[in-house]
Computed example of a mutant assay.
Amino acid sequence: MSTDSVAQSLRRARSGVGVAGAGRPPDARPKRVLSPRNVTMIALVLPSILLVLLLNAYPVLYAGVQSVRDGDLISSGDFVGLANYQTVLSDPVFWQAARFTLVFTLVGVFGSWAMGMGLALLLRRRIPAGGLFKVLLLLPWVVPVVVSATSWNWLVATPQSPLPILADALGFGRVLFLANPLLAQITVCVFKVWISFPFMMMMMGAALAAVDNNVYEAARVDGASGAQLLRTMTLPLTAKSTFISWILMTIFCVNDFPTVFLLTGGGPVNATQTLVVQAYRTVFLDFETGPGVAIAFLMTVVLVVISVVLYRSVKKVDIE
């Protein structure tokens, strides 16, 4: 048999065709015919799919209609096109809220991630009463945010609160944490990290549990330090879970209404007002539905862009 015949036979064999020509041609694919069972399953699932689409699509479409009209909570009003978006984007209060939303999100995401990662690494070691310690660390996330916000208000809100009294005793004067714009912003961001780090701790703990300890032992035998292990092994091996947790926490922070509203209400002088709080005030307090919904749509666009960027990072980690 010649060399060309051998090569052709190998190609035919890889394609599922016998040397003598038996078998189906390479390009021939069996036709897929829906069986009665598959038709029945589709018929049973289709109403649920349509219902879910309607429940999600209708509010979005209706909100889109409201964003281009000058109505209120009672009437839809007249069509004004993109005037509501122009009004929102030219409002200094919107950009002030956007800046604080950015700061609030960055601190909430990376602050809670750093704290959660540190505690997850600590909990990998054998410590006394480790199970009880884990349960206590989950409390800020498990306790309802209303209770947590009330507790923090008791700690910092008034001159008679414990932290202002402690600051006065240490010589800093009677510090009003929620009356000063900068201190109020810091307090809100710290509060967000405090109620969010347990989620990050669980995410990072699950990612670290999937890493084989033998990898670390081998690196320690080779003389790797703790910082080198963190930089070259822990962070790369948990990168996928890290990006996923960043996506989720970004969505949580941007859409977080109760944390800010219950603690400061967006004050003082709009210093801690985020975009979601501004959208709420615009719609339900100022009764301007169009601009309020326009703010929500702008938030959605930004969230989609950030999520796509981080999701591509996840896919790159999968490829590598």
Rank of each mutant, 00 (worst) to 15 (best):
A157Y: 06
T158P: 01
T158K: 11
P159Y: 10
S161E: 01
L163A: 03
L163S: 02
A167L: 02
D168A: 11
A169D: 08
A169M: 09
G173F: 09
G173M: 08
G173P: 09
V175R: 05
F177I: 02
F177W: 14
L178A: 06
L178E: 04
P181T: 09
P181C: 11
P181F: 07
P181Q: 10
L182T: 15
A184T: 05
I186L: 15
T187R: 02
T187V: 05
V188P: 07
V190L: 13
V190M: 11
F191D: 00
K192D: 11
V193P: 07
V193Q: 06
W194T: 00
W194P: 01
I195T: 09
I195M: 06
F197K: 00
F197Y: 12
P198N: 07
P198F: 03
F199N: 00
F199E: 00
M200Y: 04
M201T: 07
M202P: 00
M202H: 01
M203C: 12
M203G: 11
M204S: 10
G205C: 04
A206N: 02
A206S: 07
A207D: 05
A209G: 08
A209K: 08
V211W: 07
D212M: 09
N213E: 15
N213H: 15
N213R: 13
N213G: 10
V215R: 08
V215H: 13
E217D: 14
E217S: 11
E217P: 02
A218V: 14
A218S: 14
A219L: 07
A224W: 11
S225D: 08
A227I: 10
Q228F: 15
Q228S: 13
L229V: 14
L230W: 06
R231S: 15
T232S: 10
T232Y: 14
T232H: 15
T234K: 10
T234L: 07
T234P: 05
L235F: 15
L237R: 13
K240G: 13
S241G: 15
I244Y: 05
S245Q: 08
W246S: 08
M249N: 05
T250M: 09
T250V: 06
T250A: 07
I251D: 01
F252R: 03
C253G: 02
C253A: 09
N255K: 04
D256L: 00
F257T: 01
V260Y: 05
L262M: 05
L263H: 04
L263R: 02
T264Y: 06
P268N: 08
P268Q: 12
P268R: 05
P268I: 10
A271I: 06
T272V: 11
T272M: 08
Q273G: 03
Q273C: 04
